[in-house]
Write a protein that binds this DNA or RNA. Structure first.
Lengths: 215, 215
DNA sequence: AAAAAACTAGTGGTTTTCCGCTAGACGAAG
DNA sequence: CTTCGTCTAGCGGAAAACCACTAGTTTTTT
């Protein structure tokens, strides 16, 4: 099997050097150069064959998101692994959507990096375990935080919230529950009061964050 | 260092046997028994010290979710790794919320299982890479589906949506953008028309799904 | 330069939400 | 048995959102 030709894109030379060290000392991997921004990456893939790119997200000129989108459109055979300092799940999602196959944090272990390369070259995805932690944690902290205002609400009120979030009007809700519109208004008022919300827009956002409804 | 004492909970004996084989042949790990449901797990942890439990989610009598919640309350020192056939992110989230430290698919590789055990015993989370793939994919299919109505909207309209989603009223938005309230109304109307929405509740949900705003 | 799209602003009216306040009925808990 | 919480229902009024339509100005595209 041929060596895997790897390009590293990052605007910090230290990172490039570090990854070069890891790549060069590993069997089957070949470091073929660095690039300090997206434009350089594109010019390099035009002049030589590349199998895989370790791509920083934050770069001047052309960032990793844009560059990855371009590559996945014009060079679908080149695999991209996103590199990032920050364990931001949203950013990771966007990179994946743009065509990246994996996501690594810059402080990841050598073992992780090699695993990522191998997995991705076999057509599978790889996500930094650290990222996954924050992925789940993010959700947990919001919802299971010691106490939430959710406890203040009654079953009926939760039910009303769910119906409001289904884009139903007071009349429709009253009809569906076979109660008076006044009662629905009453509940709605109590809900707003308890949750200290301004309007139904805030209510929807609260409901999603507190998993009272699903998107 | 002492060996890590591991209990395996699953209602299929094959799974227990398989994991026992992996555990027993590995340095520093000790298989101390199996359980076919949550109640058995609890009775076993009462009679002997346990460091880590590989816990199936679907079990009769008392399932993995309930059992994990109980353990994390009464035996906080016991680490739990969830086991599942299905790569269901929602289920994974619930297990994590209930106190599990990791999530493994049953068809995971031996290497993965051992990594999971080691990571979790060091207090870190571990999530099966396969799970992560479906996690991201699930989102992608929803949002990046060929074409989204997002493309129909203008920059100004996106801006208006963002402000609406900040719980701002028409007057406040008009003020902030230094335009007439009528203009804001006009934009709002066009948005509703283009997105075929009934009211601002639907708008918020659309905005979140299409990443026009963040929660 | 012409056409198209986007942004702007208005009129006029309907519907819905939001707010405050009161109050009876009912079941559970003390 | 009384109190508390919840669910119910009502009134009146203010604010905001929603709808339909027209139309001038600016910007972008062709």
């Amino acid at each position: 099997m041929d060596k895997i030709k790897i390009l590293v894109a990052d605007d910090h030379q230290v990172i490039i050097d570090g990854l070069e060290a890891i790549i060069s000392t590993t069997e089957h991997l070949e470091f073929i150069g660095g690039a300090s921004n997206g434009k350089e990456v594109i010019s390099k893939v035009k002049s030589q064959p590349v199998d895989l790119i370790l791509m920083d997200i934050n770069m001047p000129e052309m960032d990793g998101l844009e560059c990855t989108a371009y590559l996945s459109k014009n060079y679908p055979n080149i695999r991209v692994i996103a590199l990032s300092m920050h364990d931001n799940p949203r950013l990771a999602k966007r990179m994946i959507k743009n065509g990246a196959f994996g996501f690594l944090l810059k402080n990841s272990s050598k073992a992780n990096i090699l695993t990522a390369i191998s997995e991705v070259m076999q057509g599978r995805n790889f996500f930094d375990p650290m990222l996954m932690s924050t992925f789940f944690d993010a959700d947990n902290k919001k919802t299971s935080s010691s106490f939430s205002k959710k406890d203040l609400l009654t079953k009926r009120e939760i039910q009303i919230i769910q119906l409001i979030c289904q884009e139903k009007t007071t009349i429709e809700i009253a009809d569906e529950l076979s109660i008076s519109t006044h009662t629905v208004e009453s509940h709605r008022g109590n809900i707003m009061l308890k949750l200290e919300l301004k309007n139904s827009v805030g209510l929807v956002k609260w409901a999603i964050q507190n998993e009272v409804i699903e998107l």
